[in-house]
Amino acid sequence: MSSPTNRPSHRVYAVTKNGERSFWQPIGGAWVHADGWGFNVKLDYLPLNGAEIVIRKPKVEEADVPAGETA
């Protein structure tokens, strides 16, 4: 199992919609289990108002940014 001290393999977002627009707010990270059958998820923020939770691999430019900074 991966340790949360390592850089997450995926980003966790809360996605809300306002008409035609979707707002993606990063709220945490996810780490793939060593056996590939699941994830550990750490949320830094809790989503409100029925936001959809989305887990995605980071884009290349996001993966190169040091932890704690934004692209």
Rank of each mutant, 00 (worst) to 15 (best):
H10Q: 13
G36W: 01
L48D: 12
S9K: 03
A34I: 00
V41M: 03
G28T: 03
N6L: 14
P58T: 07
R7Y: 05
G38C: 00
A14H: 05
T70Q: 06
E61K: 15
R56I: 11
E69M: 09
L43W: 04
E69C: 00
A30V: 12
G68N: 02
A51M: 03
N6H: 04
D35Q: 05
N18V: 07
V54Q: 15
T5P: 02
A71Y: 11
S3L: 12
P8C: 07
N6W: 02
V15E: 14
T16A: 06
D64F: 06
N49S: 15
W24N: 04
H10Y: 15
V60D: 14
E52T: 13
H10L: 12
P47V: 03
S22Q: 10
A14C: 03
L46K: 09
V65S: 03
P4Y: 01
V12G: 01
E61Q: 15
P26I: 01
D64A: 10
W37Q: 13
G29R: 02
I55Y: 11
G28N: 02
H33R: 13
V41T: 09
D44Q: 10
V60N: 08
W37N: 13
W31N: 11
E69T: 06
R11W: 04
S22H: 07
D35F: 01
V32I: 12
D44M: 02
L48F: 09
V60I: 09
S3C: 05
F39T: 10
A67R: 04
P66Y: 05
P47S: 11
R7N: 06
N40K: 11
W37A: 14
W24G: 00
A67F: 08
Y45C: 02
